[in-house]
Write a protein that binds this DNA or RNA. Structure first.
Lengths: 247, 247
DNA sequence: TAGTTAAAATTGGAATTACCAATTGGTAAA
DNA sequence: TTTACCAATTGGTAATTCCAATTTTAACTA
């Protein structure tokens, strides 16, 4: 059995203390010199252990201040913090450029595929898939794999962040499918005409309308919240409630 | 510009050497004592850098034997296939929009930080770090986490795709630092003036000049290849070779 | 007494030196 | 040729010193 290096043993012990609640997120670990005494090892060994913890994003090191325990976060948590507004604004700006670039190089075959997605959406078949395919074909038409990758990343956010899924759900309902189809059609026509400026504008319009819909939904939710609270206040002061209160 | 700890700088440099092909997977890094001489730092600093690389699973440490480079599996095949041209074009289009958006919301504090990166580049200190920080501050200034994420993804491609690292290496050499600094300064001034259109144009110019440099480098390489092949053809048909051919 | 500034204390950062533990390669002997 | 041993090399840990950054405390002023 190969010997385990001492600093790795210290890493494990500190991680156990963090996980065990000795040092909650936000708290500060004891100073290096004190940890060296606690664990009866040299200070460089403690430093090496702390660097490993830092790379693992378990702690944050602040020179002159101390070593602080981080929330157990990962990249997906950062993605979770992205709102539907932020995503949609980004898509407007980025996919606007994607559409403009694609207008300069899109092939007849790709246009035919684009048209296929419009047909599918018109039929009401697999509208979300058709939506994704529509944007993906345009990204492929740019002939730029970094652009394609970026569009894929944005779509991935759209379908995996629960809050964004819910927000998009409320503005991409059946009742709005005609609007979306009309906007996709306008983008398609601009691409077919190989008009980069029109394609960019059409894509902007598509997402800006979506942003407005998100605002509308947010306002409706806020009004609903105000009504709910007023209703609670009514219940709080109503005599009916008082009369029925158990002794 | 906040001071970056020395061992992190060494981590970056070693990673660049690995990504740049100096130390292919399976090869052994120079001994700690030698690395300390090469980088002109102390051996504990090297040790700290190597521990970070180990946690990142870039290297494997064998006591008494050496530090060995591990296969790098993070990059997908699709990401490996992205060329420096594609990345740079994407950055031009996307970061142009980022700059325009940032011009509408950038704070004085952020402008000050941006200026700090210009100072660092002027001094010749850690220019790649200052470059990254420059673009990152602008992305943060958009107040849009999806945009920031996109810029981070593009930068990640820039530093982890070996071919892109090599290509950028040849056009971001010391001799071009003044051009880059001038372009960054133009972007900074447009942002300071809160002029979205100028910021977008300045960012486009920055990357378009970079694309042209990449083309120049590619052309030089192609010419070199043509010369090499012509030289081979000359050798193939030269009488000297024929006369000296062994029986 | 309250606010501000400067000094002191504390904490992390880096370097130097020394010695120990593990591995590898070279040499000698069987 | 094979095996054993030794020296050299490489990583691992400790101790000490001094520097850089931040926080806390003390002193001063209004």
């Amino acid at each position: 059995m190969k010997n385990r290096r001492l600093f790795w043993r210290i890493v494990d012990q500190i991680e156990a203390m963090i996980s065990g609640g000795d040092f909650p997120a936000g708290s500060r670990l004891p100073p290096e010199r004190e940890l060296a005494e606690i664990f009866d090892v040299s200070r460089p060994t403690i430093r090496e252990a702390i660097i490993a913890l830092e790379v693992r994003e378990r702690v944050e090191v602040k020179t002159g201040s101390g070593v602080y325990v981080l929330e157990q976060t990962n990249l997906s948590k950062a993605d979770m913090a992205i709102s539907a507004f932020e995503l949609t604004q980004s898509r407007a700006l980025i996919e606007g450029e994607v559409a403009a670039l694609a207008a300069t190089s899109i092939t007849d075959e790709e246009l035919e595929k684009l048209h296929g997605t419009l047909i599918a959406m018109e039929k009401g078949d697999y509208t979300e898939e058709a939506d994704e395919e529509f944007h993906r074909i345009i990204a492929v038409a740019t002939r730029n794999k970094a652009m394609l990758r970026t569009v894929e990343n944005l779509w991935s956010l759209r379908v995996s962040n629960p809050q964004i899924v819910a927000d998009y759900g409320s503005v991409c309902a059946k009742s709005n499918q005609n609007k979306i189809l009309n906007e996709h059609t306008a983008i398609y026509k601009a691409l077919k005409a190989r008009d980069a400026t029109a394609a960019r504008a059409a894509m902007h319009q598509h997402f800006n309308r979506l942003i407005n819909s998100l605002f509308d939904a947010l306002e409706a939710k806020a009004l609903e919240e105000v009504r709910r609270k007023a209703s609670e206040k009514r219940g709080l002061y109503s005599l009916e409630g008082v009369l029925h209160r158990p002794a």
